[in-house]
Nucleic acid binder design. Structure first.
Lengths: 136, 136
DNA sequence: CCGTATCCGAAAGGATACTG
DNA sequence: CAGTATCCTTTCGGATACGG
């Protein structure tokens, strides 16, 4: 998550900073409904290491996509939520999910292979079904 | 462009294969209006090396996103065009460009820095203006 | 509970030279 | 013109251990 700052004048490169990473859309998608704690987020995205999650959250926070609220209690409690800018990304992600899902099914048919959804981001996929129904 | 095959069951990861790369959206965007030759594509995307362009085109071709037509002439001529599946990606890319552009301008205002659009993918940005007008 | 610090391997992307 | 082949650098993401 170091230098995604290149080619700053291009809207595509700019957007890729936020959605191009392996876990970025997954994280944002989890946060779409409201605040989540660090470990909740971690548990929702299996295979995602703490380090990478921290890096991503820090990056999002610096960029104003996500805001962080710390409760100085014992045990500590930290909540992350989307900012308004972050919320704007959700419809974009929905579009991407929509395409990805449609062409996933296509490949399934084309190659006649078994459809074995990865456990990872499985919830994302389930949530997508809702989106699809809503969109018609 | 080697192993983008992981997490095959997730629609997001699936879509990222095609739009997550540094130049992928740029290439697809260039092809949105019709067939282009290898060098035309190359010239349209400065800073993109031949190797990377070749890799991307080969990947897209294998995945059925782009089709390739070779004219056995001297000098050689090869044309690349989007397949129907590839065309489906254009609206998705438009959404992404739209978000990227909006938040690029936002940052510009927030940070009060000079807006110096990168030459890279400059045309993409210009074309975006058309898209924006059309979309309202 | 919520991270940080350190180290590591894989892989994406780039530079350059060469070929049918 | 349209690529290949080779080498090299960067950086992304993962494992593990430790700290406030």
């Amino acid at each position: 998550m170091a230098s995604k700052e290149t080619l700053a004048g291009c809207p595509v490169q700019h957007a890729l900073q936020y959605i191009g990473g392996k876990w970025q859309m997954g994280i944002l998608w989890q946060l779409r409904k409201g605040a989540l704690r660090f470990n909740t987020l971690k548990d929702a995205l299996p295979n995602l290491s703490e380090k990478v999650l921290t890096e991503n959250l820090k990056f999002f926070e610096e960029k104003g996509i996500v805001s962080k609220q710390s409760f100085l209690s014992v045990p500590p409690k930290v909540e992350y939520r989307l900012t308004a800018d972050g919320q704007d990304l959700i419809p974009v992600i929905e579009k991407i999910i929509h395409w990805g899902y449609a062409h996933l099914q296509e490949e399934k048919v084309k190659k006649d292979t078994l459809f074995t959804p990865s456990v990872v981001m499985n919830e994302l996929q389930q949530e997508y079904n809702t989106v699809e129904k809503a969109a018609g």
